[in-house]
Design a protein around this nucleic acid. Structure first.
Length: 736
DNA sequence: GTGAGCTGCGTTTTT
DNA sequence: CGCAGCTCAC
């Protein structure tokens, strides 16, 4: 590479590999980007390079991500780098871009112009209704399973009619799938998986549309490619002409097979391999230099992931220092674990470090509870990721349902939600009649309701109530359609009685609901259709509704408060923290019980472990509990196999230093006693958490004790035979 | 229409 | 064990 190239401002601060990826000639590329290797940076600089050096129009570039957050970050950084608008560029999520295609070509795919998006909550309610209408045994068939089945098939690109060779169970799900799809089609509703499936069918079946986009998008860049499922892969392939079309299309995929943690929802790591087979002359570039973690952390993470087979192969390295060893805390139970973590955070904070630099990672959400209790007790502020998001809140969804009805009367899901919210005398009986009528006549609920009133199938109070509702919606549209969006929403919320309903409720919860409704009006006032990447020819209302469905909104505010972050290992992906705690690293928790059966799932757990470890910049603390209460039952665990895969020299073992009986689950001690000094030894003469040896049972850890004097008993979790209660006087335990 | 009381369920999550 | 969702009685 000559000097003029290396001095290009876009290549300035990049390492050789990054530079090679950014300045590569136009071609298909596979960038294997390890954790913390500057992946987004490469992607962003590559786009800028295409614009500046190859003088490509922003119009000819598409960049695809999985989350809105990633898309927004990419757009922002590209804009900052090239200093001009990127509006013409298609940067977005798979779902967002598919939605865009469907809006632009709704007629070609047989959708009404006002089609609405069904989120997974809506989808489940819809399925529940459909399964009732099919008179299925509710003990045997669950909407949840049906939802799983349908989405999995759609993710594979399969429609109900494509399914054959099914067993009896699947046959039923197929029927549900078909009925559900017919209902969605009638109502103009599109679920998330449907966005992708239908966009793919559009490109597949419509040569004119397909060729138009193939001509347009000279470069397609896909982030997190290891997380793509079958339909997403097929979609990219279709858009790019498979890389062998008559047009010059180039696809760049960026990903890390070691960070594929979404196999359970249909992601296929093999898509990375498949890309190499499908596209000609793919250049592979590996980004292995890590700019995030200490050498110790990387060595440990590399050792763990090395236990997986079928890897593309990659080893992270750093020019940085060794750093501190990884601490391993062996807790006697989950409360001890939580208390230890809280004490470590206190120490960290006292040394002048920020709490927001600390993350607590766990395998499952249920684990957060005990951690929260300990943090609360220690008065350490914390924030939990993955709560309910704005557009997912009940009251907000109610309001949106009214708006959806204004946009599209046939939206059955919306109608079901609000026809009797607030209550207006339309009870279960009346609704059943309307549902039956709709099914028999193959109409939407709205149309059926109208007909049934007209034909006097519905009479008296019921007819009156239904009529009032119909008139309310019609009138609302009439009167507010000329309003600006914010005004319109404000009037709809009030005239529908929704606001009054929540105002009448009392309590803190109700107050928040009222606040949220006001906030929705606010969001509408500030909504910028173009900023949201919605086409101009979409009505503002439809644009907003699509926006609400596709981006369920940010998490709650108060982000400015310095607080520890709690989240699952999955949601930690892509983030980094100076201090990371990985908790509950026990066999049966992590790897989870359910992953034991299949090697593939175990490998995914290991990748999750790799993801977790590589979040840590300076210091990683791993902990596990010998005993843990799960669903009200005491479980005894051993440390996770993943811990054993870390080189011993990188680990620093810690056991409980000052034992307190409260951690031995004695009654009446409360969950977290103040940390005043407690006797380190139990009345048995053994320390809680201490390692002991028994002639027959081998080695184990002291977990608990009860009684005193000659009857005193002690509970030991033996490595080989599990937990046992022993009478100390007879057990002849030795200290290890 | 509302609330007590019962039942069933219980990785991981984005769109 | 803790919850959400549902039923049934008023």
């Amino acid at each position: 590479m000559d000097d003029s190239m290396t001095q290009h401002p876009l290549l300035d601060q990049l390492n050789d590999k990054q530079r090679a990826a950014v300045s590569a000639p136009e071609r298909h590329m596979l960038v294997l980007a390890g954790a913390g290797s500057g992946k987004t940076r490469v992607l962003v600089h590559r786009i800028a390079w295409l614009l500046q050096e190859y003088h490509l129009s922003p119009y000819s570039i598409m960049a695809v991500t999985f989350t809105n957050k990633a898309a927004a970050e990419m757009r922002g950084r590209v804009e900052a780098l090239v200093g001009s608008s990127t509006r013409a560029m298609w940067i977005g999520t798979f779902h967002g871009l598919a939605h865009r295609l469907l809006r632009a070509h709704y007629m070609d795919v047989g959708l009404p112009q006002n089609f609405q998006i069904l989120d997974s909550d809506d989808q489940q309610r819809m399925l529940k209704r459909i399964m009732r209408s099919l008179n299925l045994d509710e003990k045997r068939w669950s909407p949840k399973q049906a939802q799983w089945f349908i989405n999995a098939k759609k993710d594979e690109g399969l429609r109900a009619e494509h399914l054959d060779g099914l067993d009896y169970n699947e046959q039923t799900y197929k029927e549900i799938y078909a009925t559900y799809q017919a209902a969605c089609d009638r109502a103009g509703l599109v679920d998330f998986a449907e966005l992708l499936l239908r966009a793919h069918e559009l490109l597949r079946d419509n040569a004119i549309v397909r060729e138009h986009y193939q001509r347009r998008f000279r470069h397609i860049l896909v982030d997190e490619f290891q997380d793509t499922n079958a339909i997403q892969y097929a979609w990219v392939k279709m858009l790019s002409g498979g890389g062998r079309g008559e047009n010059e299309n180039f696809v760049t995929i960026v990903g890390d097979d070691d960070q594929s943690i979404y196999g359970w929802r249909g992601a296929k790591i093999e898509n990375i391999h498949q890309f190499n087979r499908d596209y000609p002359n793919v250049e592979t570039i590996r980004l292995e230099q890590n700019y995030r973690s200490t050498n110790t952390i990387l060595t440990a993470a590399n050792s763990v992931i090395a236990n997986n087979t079928d890897r593309l192969g990659k080893e992270l390295w750093t020019e940085g220092g060794t750093g501190e060893p990884i601490d391993l805390y062996a807790a006697i139970n989950e409360m001890d674990e939580a208390r230890y973590i809280a004490s470590r955070i206190e120490a960290w904070h006292e040394q002048g470090n920020a709490l927001q630099d600390v993350a607590l990672l766990y395998r499952s959400n249920a684990q957060s509870r005990v951690l929260e209790e300990a943090l609360l007790h220690a008065r350490i502020p914390y924030r939990i990721y993955g709560g309910l998001r704005f557009f997912d809140r009940q009251e907000v969804k109610d309001a949106l349902a009214y708006l959806r009805l204004l946009a599209n009367r046939d939206d059955d899901a919306a109608l079901e939600r609000v026809i009797n919210t607030p209550t207006r005398g339309i009870g279960a009986r009346t609704l059943d009649i309307v549902r039956d009528g709709a099914r028999q006549r193959q109409l939407s609920l709205w149309q059926a309701a109208k007909q049934l009133v007209q034909e006097k199938v519905l009479t008296g109070r019921a007819a009156n109530a239904v009529n009032t509702f119909i008139e309310l919606i019609d009138q609302l549209e009439d009167e507010t359609s000329d309003d600006l969006l914010g005004k319109q929403v404000d009037r709809v919320i009030k005239a529908s009685g929704l606001m009054a309903m929540y105002e009448a409720e009392k309590g803190e919860k109700a107050e928040t609901r009222v606040e949220n409704l006001k906030e929705l009006v606010n969001a509408c006032e500030n909504f910028d259709q173009l900023d949201a990447n919605m086409e101009e020819d979409l009505t503002p209302l439809n644009a907003f509704l699509a926006h609400a469905a596709l981006e369920s909104g940010e998490e709650q505010a108060d982000e400015y408060q310095d607080a520890v972050q709690l989240m699952t290992l999955h949601s930690a992906k892509g983030l980094e923290f100076p201090l990371v705690f990985m908790c509950g690293v026990e066999e049966g928790m992590f790897p989870s019980q359910q992953s034991f059966e299949e090697a593939g799932r175990l490998a995914e757990e290991r990748r999750l472990c790799y993801v977790g470890m590589t979040r840590a910049m300076q210091k990683l603390v791993i902990s596990y509990a010998e005993q843990r209460r799960i669903y009200g039952q005491e479980k005894f665990h051993t440390q996770s196999r993943f811990i054993g895969e870390i080189p011993a020299e990188n680990l620093h073992h810690i056991r409980m230093q000052s034992a307190s009986p409260s951690f031995g689950r004695q009654p009446n001690y409360g969950r977290f006693r103040t940390s005043a000094s407690h006797e380190a030894f139990t009345e048995t003469g053994f320390q809680l958490g201490q390692r002991v040896r028994h002639a027959k049972f081998g080695e184990g850890t002291v977990l608990n004790y009860e009684g005193s004097g000659p009857q005193s008993r002690i509970q030991v979790n033996f490595d080989d035979v599990g937990a046992k209660w022993l009478v100390v006087a007879y057990a002849r335990l030795d200290r290890c």
